[in-house]
Write a protein that binds this DNA or RNA. Structure first.
Lengths: 338, 338
DNA sequence: CTGAAAGCGCTTACAG
DNA sequence: CTGAAAGCGCTTACAG
């Protein structure tokens, strides 16, 4: 069933049908409009969007790009963060009449090809590419781009971040207020903008409370389970004076707890830990993990809104950088020291 | 840059360019072929797939459908199972030259519309719809369909299951072999084909070991965290003789453990628990959860293979129903009784 | 208010 | 081995 079929049935031209479908009601009399709409409903006509895309030069397709280039998300497959984001993004976009293509990319060329294959209207990067990779990707981009958690100070793309500095500030202050003074920061932040932000939050909380920073309390591990485990083992080595650890991912925090346990520590009494992301995972582990919550659905929706605004107006939003607020989600993984 | 541009540059017709691109090499002389390929490479030509889709009636788009109809996956957003599947499916399809559209659907009409909007070549359902819903969906399907974990005995679609019965048989036997006799089955299986399969595995293991089945040991809760929690509280009520629980989802098992803990039980000593799915979650909880592993990547790849085979040959595979083997992944959540 | 025509970028018989 | 023409299903100026 095509426009032509409907036109024939209604005894009008395809152009008139097209006008009705696209709501250009001013150009069609009420009678023919009703007649055409009745036929459309009766036969369940559905427009062919490839054809529309071909003439309109817009596809209503948004790409969710998962960059594999820098191995930054080797285990994205099992990351509940990813499903949460994809799910919320898909739903928001669908409500706005868009379609979601999910695509992992190995090389910049894959990305360039995808965009032109389908006339993609806009793309969302779930992870920030490295500055170099981002530069290359933007060079070949043919549509608006939104990047999550990209801390680079550039104003030519949409960026949606969380208040990372505040996140670790809150986490660190929280443990300080409970009497901790020997606090580890678990993440290899150097060279990573977002982790550096978080590190600065940690520093700020220490400074405000007159606790001097000790470089040896920074445990430079990747923010995943294995990294956390290694950190936990080190933090809880015999004689270690550290009583609390702040992390940059729930998974990392869970690794730290496991490491502490392997060193024979009782949790949370002998080591307090704070996560980051506030995944439902936090309720599953023992002790339940106190974490920094990001409100992922809001983050996803905010990105979608900004991206669609750019697509529709053709202009970058006046405020293309949004920072989502964070808060501490208190559970049971931090002990008060007496 | 279009076919026409290339044709002009090479001094040939668009048809010749098209033939080169589509590898119909027999119809073009080597020289013009090389000339055209050089131009394509130089200018980085990328075909417009909407146009190709329009003429070819095939789109190379595969839909991953997430059915919201029966609320069966209310919390799919944070389910790592989903990201694992989407990730693996996307990668397999990409390697075969296909594109993935992810789409949640509220009503059958959404689905019908999607398929015709884009001439979708095939669809994958991550969750089995209810039999009724499936019937409706198939009635409007215009392409091959593959459904995960659909136990209905129908041979007109591709179905990829795990050996659910064996899964719970293994889980139950495992705890029996460790001395347990009072074993709860945690899931409201009635009316759910897949859960019924698992229940039958539980029964079989009991029977084989001469343990009589007790209906009151079936805890009819939904297979999620909250359901597990409720089950755990009940299983570990004072005076309850139950010493072990087998479940149908890791999340459910984690809920059971939490419920047991809330009743003051020591784990695993005072309650043994087995999960299902073997998510990485199992390593994160305390005690580490013994579970039934499904090999999700293989499951995803198998589905992709069968689906593409049907798309390419136009005929349902001779064996459209695949059952993936399962195994027990031993961790620390089951205690041996003396 | 309505229509005939051209065009989006591609492929496929059909001729030569 | 190569090309001219028609067509996929849609929309958009341009006329009337």
């Amino acid at each position: 069933m095509t426009l032509k079929d409907i036109a024939r049935m209604a005894g009008v031209s395809t152009m008139t049908v097209s006008n009705v479908i696209n709501g250009k009601t001013s150009r069609v009399s009420k009678e023919t409009r009703d007649r055409i709409n009745a036929i459309i409903r009766e036969y369940g006509y559905v427009p062919n969007l490839s054809a529309r895309s071909l003439t309109n030069k817009v596809s209503n397709i948004i790409g969710i790009i998962i960059s594999l280039e820098d191995g930054g998300c080797e285990n994205y497959l099992e990351n509940p963060y990813i499903s949460t984001m994809i799910g919320t993004i898909e739903r928001s976009l669908r409500e706005q009449g868009y379609f979601v293509m999910v695509r992992s990319i190995d090389r910049t060329a894959d990305y360039a090809t995808l965009l032109r294959n389908w006339n993609v209207d806009g793309v969302l990067f779930l992870y920030p590419p490295t500055p170099d990779a981002l530069q290359k990707l933007l060079a070949v981009s043919t549509c608006p781009v939104a990047v999550f958690d990209c801390c680079e100070d550039r104003s030519d793309i949409i960026r949606i971040c969380s208040d990372d500095r505040k996140g670790l500030y809150l986490a660190t202050r929280y443990v300080i207020e409970r009497g901790h003074r020997q606090i580890a920061f678990v993440a290899d932040y150097e060279g990573n903008a977002i982790l550096t932000e978080r590190f600065l939050g940690y520093r700020q909380a220490l400074d405000e409370h007159g606790i001097s920073f000790r470089p040896e309390y920074v445990i430079p591990v990747p923010p995943n389970y294995e990294g956390g485990l290694a950190a936990g083992l080190r933090i809880c080595a015999p004689e270690s004076p550290i009583t609390a650890a702040v992390t940059t991912a729930d998974i990392s925090a869970i690794g730290v707890m496991e490491g502490a346990r392997q060193q024979g520590r009782q949790l949370p009494r002998e080591l307090s830990v704070v996560g980051f992301d506030n995944l439902s995972l936090c309720d599953y582990v023992t002790p339940h993990l106190t974490s920094i919550s990001q409100n992922l659905p809001e983050k996803a929706r905010c990105a979608v809104e900004l991206l669609l605004s750019q697509i529709r107006t053709g202009a970058l939003p006046t405020q293309p950088h949004a920072t989502m607020d964070v808060a501490i989600a208190e559970r049971a993984s931090v002990a008060s020291l007496e």
